[in-house]
Amino acid sequence: MKKNTLTTVIVIAALALIAVWMVGRYNTMVTEQENVETAWGQVENQYQRRMDLVNQLVGSVEGMAIHETQYMTDVISARAKATQVTVDPSNMTAEQLKAFQEAQGELSQALGRLLVSVEQYPELKADEHFMKLMTAIEGSENRLSVARNTFNEQAKVYNTYIRKFPNNIIASIFGFEKRPYFEADEAAKTAPKVDFKSLKN
């Protein structure tokens, strides 16, 4: 057992320790990033689910008086716009997310205005199928807000992790980038809030 060997062993062990530590951090980053992407998948799922319901809604009121109103035209054009804006989850920028959120927000508002106007159409309130769609859309909006919150929470965990020292060094070496958040939608706050419960009664 020579002295040189001891030094070599200690140096190699130190390097191995650093490597193991880096691998650990890197893997955690991958996991966190994957969590963000899963959360984003949920967000997209919920938007898709709402889109399907809107399609059903538009189909079910065809031929009824409400179909010819400005509210309906707004929903249809907002729907067309929302389908066009997509976000690539692995390469998400703040601008992309903002455009996505705006397009979807527009649909939310158009939908909200339409549903408020339903008050004026008693034949719709008596329609069981229509009222079921109401329940479904309400559930869909709820799930959307949960999915968006979950996404923001996951993105926050991930962003905090990659920006902490010394993780930021590893993150910059391997190109882990900060993820944008869903902003609290100002327009959505001022839009008329549909009280689904009062509609049902």
Partner: peptide
């Protein structure tokens, strides 16, 4: 598992040294 594996490896290397 990822976290505990890292911890295990670090302890193993330290034990070795």
């Amino acid at each position: 598992p990822i976290k505990s594996r890292t911890r295990y490896m670090i302890i193993a290397i330290l034990a070795f040294v």
